[in-house]
């Protein structure tokens, strides 16, 4: 079972050095324990572009995120975990390491 752990924050500023160090330790542990699938940082939504090609004609391209909100996804982990209890524990560890909120979402 895979889960997406979205890192939620109200600014896209980079992690501090201490946060960065804690994230590295956390990631290494996730890899050692076999939970790691993938991770990435995204930062601010200013650089986002929304593409809508549902009509199949000329794609509609819009500058900015799909929705303006105070908080947004600044990064994510994808993990492999047997159940939600394990995923929540990892999310708690990740949230502590990067010092930001984490949203847990199961893959379909």
């Amino acid at each position: 079972m895979q889960y997406l752990l979205n890192v939620i924050h109200d600014s896209g500023e980079n992690a501090t050095e201490a946060e960065q160090a804690a994230i590295v330790v956390f990631n290494q542990q996730m890899k050692a324990d076999g939970y790691w699938v993938f991770a990435g940082g995204l930062g601010v939504t200013d650089n986002a572009t929304v593409v809508d090609n549902r009509s199949g004609g000329e794609p509609l391209v819009t500058d900015g995120p799909f929705v303006e909100s105070k908080e947004y996804v600044v990064g994510f982990w994808i993990i492999e975990a047997p159940d939600l209890d394990v995923a929540l524990k990892l999310a708690a560890g990740g949230s502590k390491a990067c010092n930001r909120k984490v949203e847990v979402r199961p893959f379909l």
Partner: peptide
């Protein structure tokens, strides 16, 4: 079902 909340008695620590 979708998030796979386990059907289990939690471990002693939890």
């Amino acid at each position: 079902k979708a998030a796979r909340i386990p059907y289990r008695v939690p471990a002693a620590a939890d």
